[in-house]
Amino acid sequence: MVKNALQAQLLKAGLVDNKKAKKLSKQAQHEQRTGQSNEAELKAKIEQDKQGKIAKDQALNMEKQRLLDEKALKASIIQMIGQHKIKDTDGEVIYQFIDANKIKKIYINQQIYNALVSGSLVIAKENDGYAYLPKALAERIDEKMQGFIIINNANAQSNEQTTDEEDPYAAYVIPDDLMW
Rank of each mutant, 00 (worst) to 15 (best):
M1F: 07
V2H: 00
N4T: 03
N4C: 05
A8W: 01
Q9T: 00
G14Q: 06
G14I: 06
G14L: 08
V16A: 02
V16L: 12
N18Y: 04
L24P: 00
Q27A: 12
A28F: 03
A28C: 00
A28Y: 04
H30V: 05
E31D: 03
R33N: 07
E39Y: 08
E41H: 07
L42C: 07
K43G: 01
K43C: 04
K43A: 13
K45H: 09
I46R: 06
E47Y: 05
Q51Y: 01
G52V: 01
K53Y: 12
K53D: 10
A55N: 14
K56P: 01
K56C: 11
K56H: 14
Q58N: 15
Q58L: 15
L60C: 13
N61V: 04
M62I: 10
M62W: 05
M62R: 12
M62D: 14
E63C: 02
E63R: 11
D69H: 02
E70F: 06
K71Q: 15
K71V: 11
K71D: 15
L73R: 13
K74E: 15
K74S: 13
Q79E: 14
M80Y: 00
I81M: 05
Q83V: 10
K87A: 11
D90M: 08
D90F: 07
G91A: 09
G91H: 04
E92R: 06
E92Y: 08
V93Y: 03
I94Y: 05
I94R: 08
F97S: 08
I98S: 14
I98W: 11
D99S: 10
D99C: 04
A100C: 09
K102S: 12
K102L: 14
I103F: 07
I103Y: 08
I103T: 15
I106W: 03
Y107F: 15
Y107R: 10
Q110C: 05
Q111D: 10
Q111H: 08
I112H: 05
I112N: 02
Y113G: 04
Y113D: 09
N114W: 08
A115M: 14
A115F: 13
S118C: 06
S118Q: 10
G119M: 07
L121V: 00
V122I: 13
I123K: 02
A124E: 05
N127V: 04
D128F: 11
D128V: 08
G129C: 04
Y130Q: 05
Y130N: 02
Y132M: 03
L133M: 07
P134R: 02
K135W: 12
A136R: 10
A136F: 10
L137H: 06
I141L: 04
I141H: 01
D142M: 10
D142P: 01
E143V: 03
E143P: 00
K144G: 03
K144L: 15
M145G: 03
Q146L: 08
Q146T: 11
G147Q: 09
F148C: 05
F148Q: 05
I149K: 03
I149C: 03
N152S: 08
N152T: 01
N152G: 01
N155W: 13
E160T: 11
E160N: 11
T162Q: 12
T163C: 12
E165H: 07
E166Y: 12
E166D: 15
D167R: 06
Y169F: 15
A170N: 10
A170G: 05
A171Q: 13
A171W: 14
Y172G: 07
D176F: 15
D177C: 12
L178P: 04
M179H: 11
